[in-house]
Design a protein around this nucleic acid. Structure first.
Lengths: 212, 212
DNA sequence: CAGGTACGAGACGTACCGTACCTTAATGGC
DNA sequence: GCCATTAAGGTACGGTACGTCTCGTACCTG
């Protein structure tokens, strides 16, 4: 038998002593996030994470039942959501800026991970919900904020302050990513969404109802 | 050494003679589709498909490089798209009927397969495009048709005949499936989409633009 | 009838899954 | 301070699937 030399490709963090509970949990999540950033969701395997965290699969399975759950947990822990809200002075500028940020997010490496997690958690509504919390583009709060400003400026009527209405633009953008697989959505699509759909929707709502 | 008895669970179609080219290709696609309907995309394995088709992995890999490509090819071959267009007499009825059909499709077994394929082809725009052709809800043709009827009835202005505008409703619906993982979207969501977003958008567009 | 080509068959090494089993260390109650 | 409890570590297992490779062989072509 040769030595136990294992010229492993994956980094193996030696266990300092014997970690327990929260300490070990954090080490696992950290290793999982590193795997995600380096090799993506495809590379997130229980065995690799265990090796990298300097532990074994047992410790992981005791905490998370599936790869998807582990991935979502790691993502939630380490990806901070940018909650800044643009304030350009007018609705179109704010909305466009929001879309551009979302576009950048989705096309970034982090966004790639998010997309993969979204696909991986496809049939687990609970996990999906956990992801949504950290996605924040679907979070209607930011959109409602810029709409509220627009209302106070008199750009649109207050009827527009409806969650489903507020997030229409970003939902359309996300659809481009999911159904078309864009690496990055061209800016013309963003302006198209704003000018052809979003603004007409906001301005048209409640302005009147043309007879019918 | 025990005998080579292999009480296999997966059906194994015996090869009649030695098929080649198109005949073999059809046999593989058929086996793939059967696997899809029985065990879903998760059960679509090169090995299982090969066994089922009475051939071997070689023949598959010569034709399709990945599982996703095989799945999409099989889906395209066997799932016929329902291209009927509702005609209820008014725009709201037509749109609602379109959404209800889409909802049924997405929540059916076939829809589950489609969703899985969509996730599986996540980072292959070419495959995604091939899927889109067969999806038809994204196909704006049907939506544009019902809109054209509404225009001729005077319900909405002709400015609404815009592909991105026309498909807004079904895109919002699809988003519910993908980000929320609904088994089936409740009807109230459909009416909400229609009444809060889609109709206001169509009626509001071009009615005017309130200064600014 | 010779030859190229594509298929059938199956083995191969790798990777990962999920589980099981035992050993060993940390922890908290007493 | 001691010991039972608990949670780690370590490791092996059977199983499945991947993707590749090597043959032998049937088919089609010229």
């Amino acid at each position: 038998m040769a030595d136990k030399a294992q010229p492993d490709s994956t980094p193996q963090r030696p266990a300092p002593s014997r970690r327990r509970g929260a300490a070990l949990e954090q080490a696992i999540l950290r290793a999982a996030m590193e795997e995600l950033t380096e090799t993506g969701y495809a590379g997130l395997t229980m065995e690799r994470v265990a090796r990298r965290a300097g532990t074994n699969k047992n410790a992981i399975y005791r905490r998370w039942p599936t790869r998807a759950a582990l991935g979502v947990a790691a993502y939630r822990q380490f990806v901070v959501t940018n909650t800044q809200i643009p304030d350009t002075g007018d609705l179109r500028g704010d909305a466009l800026e929001m879309l551009r940020r979302a576009n950048r997010t989705w096309s970034s490496p982090t966004g790639g991970i998010l997309r993969a997690l979204l696909a991986g958690a496809r049939d687990d509504p609970q996990l999906l919900a956990q992801l949504q919390e950290r996605t924040a583009d679907a979070g209607s709060a930011a959109w409602l904020t810029i709409l509220a400003r627009a209302v106070s400026r008199g750009e649109i009527g207050p009827e527009a302050l409806h969650p489903r209405v507020a997030t229409v633009a970003v939902v359309l953008l996300r659809d481009e990513f999911i159904t078309r697989g864009y690496p990055e959505v061209p800016d013309s699509v963003l302006t198209d969404i704003i000018d052809e759909v979003y603004l007409p929707l906001l301005r048209g709502r409640g302005t009147d109802s043309p007879s019918s």
